[in-house]
Lab assay of single mutants.
Amino acid sequence: KVILLEDVKGLGKKGDVVEVKDGYARNFLIPQGLAVEATKGNLKEL
Results as ranks from 00 to 15, higher is better:
K1H: 10
K1C: 09
K1I: 12
K1G: 04
K1N: 10
K1S: 15
K1A: 10
V2Y: 12
V2W: 14
V2K: 01
V2T: 02
V2D: 00
V2P: 00
V2A: 02
V2F: 11
I3F: 08
I3D: 01
I3P: 00
I3G: 00
I3R: 07
I3S: 03
L4V: 00
L4F: 02
L4A: 00
L4T: 00
L4Y: 00
L5A: 03
L5M: 10
L5T: 08
L5S: 04
L5V: 08
L5N: 03
L5Y: 03
E6D: 09
E6P: 00
E6N: 12
E6K: 13
E6T: 15
E6F: 13
E6L: 11
E6V: 14
D7E: 10
D7S: 09
D7N: 11
V8D: 00
V8N: 02
V8P: 00
V8E: 01
V8C: 06
V8I: 12
V8M: 11
K9S: 12
K9N: 13
K9E: 15
K9V: 13
K9M: 12
K9L: 14
G10S: 07
G10V: 02
G10W: 11
G10H: 08
G10P: 05
G10Q: 07
G10C: 06
G10F: 10
G10I: 04
L11Q: 02
L11M: 06
L11D: 00
L11R: 02
L11W: 05
L11G: 00
G12S: 01
G12Y: 00
G12A: 03
G12V: 00
G12N: 00
G12P: 00
K13N: 12
K13T: 10
K13V: 09
K13R: 11
K13A: 13
K13M: 14
K13Q: 11
K13Y: 12
K14E: 05
K14D: 02
K14A: 09
K14C: 06
K14R: 13
K14M: 07
G15H: 11
G15V: 00
G15K: 03
G15M: 05
G15T: 02
G15Q: 03
G15D: 06
G15F: 12
D16S: 12
D16V: 07
D16C: 11
D16T: 15
D16Q: 13
D16R: 05
D16P: 00
D16K: 06
D16E: 09
V17W: 06
V17G: 02
V17A: 05
V17S: 06
V17L: 05
V18S: 02
V18N: 01
V18D: 00
V18Q: 02
E19R: 14
E19K: 13
E19H: 10
E19W: 15
E19G: 05
E19D: 13
V20Q: 01
V20F: 03
V20D: 06
V20P: 03
V20K: 00
V20R: 01
V20Y: 02
V20E: 02
K21Q: 14
K21N: 13
K21S: 14
K21L: 12
K21T: 14
K21Y: 11
K21V: 15
D22V: 10
D22R: 10
D22Y: 12
D22P: 12
G23T: 12
G23Q: 13
G23F: 14
G23D: 15
G23P: 10
G23Y: 12
G23S: 09
Y24R: 03
Y24C: 03
Y24H: 08
Y24I: 09
Y24N: 03
Y24A: 04
Y24F: 13
A25D: 12
A25N: 05
A25K: 07
A25V: 08
A25P: 02
A25R: 03
A25W: 09
R26K: 15
R26P: 06
R26I: 13
R26Y: 13
R26W: 13
R26A: 13
R26G: 12
N27M: 10
N27E: 14
N27Y: 13
N27G: 14
N27T: 10
N27K: 11
N27D: 13
F28P: 02
F28C: 07
F28W: 10
F28R: 04
L29T: 01
L29E: 01
L29F: 02
L29Y: 02
L29H: 01
L29V: 01
I30F: 13
I30L: 10
I30E: 02
I30R: 01
I30G: 02
I30N: 02
I30T: 02
I30H: 02
I30P: 01
I30V: 08
P31W: 14
P31H: 15
P31R: 14
Q32N: 13
Q32Y: 10
Q32V: 08
Q32A: 11
Q32C: 14
Q32G: 10
Q32D: 06
G33V: 03
G33Q: 11
G33W: 03
G33S: 05
L34G: 01
L34N: 02
L34R: 05
L34C: 03
A35C: 03
A35M: 01
A35F: 02
A35K: 00
A35P: 01
A35Q: 01
A35W: 01
V36M: 08
V36I: 14
V36A: 07
V36F: 05
V36W: 06
V36D: 04
E37R: 07
E37N: 07
E37K: 08
E37A: 06
E37P: 07
A38C: 11
A38Q: 03
A38F: 08
A38W: 08
A38D: 11
A38M: 04
A38V: 04
A38N: 08
A38T: 07
T39P: 09
T39H: 08
T39N: 11
T39A: 05
T39I: 04
T39L: 06
T39K: 08
T39D: 15
T39S: 09
K40C: 11
K40H: 15
K40G: 13
K40W: 15
G41D: 15
G41Y: 04
G41L: 11
G41C: 13
G41E: 15
N42C: 05
N42R: 01
N42V: 04
N42L: 04
N42W: 04
N42M: 03
N42I: 04
L43T: 04
L43R: 02
L43M: 06
L43A: 03
L43P: 05
K44H: 14
K44D: 15
K44V: 14
K44T: 15
K44G: 10
E45Y: 05
E45W: 07
E45L: 07
E45I: 04
E45D: 12
E45K: 03
E45V: 05
L46G: 07
L46T: 11
L46E: 13
L46Y: 15
L46H: 14
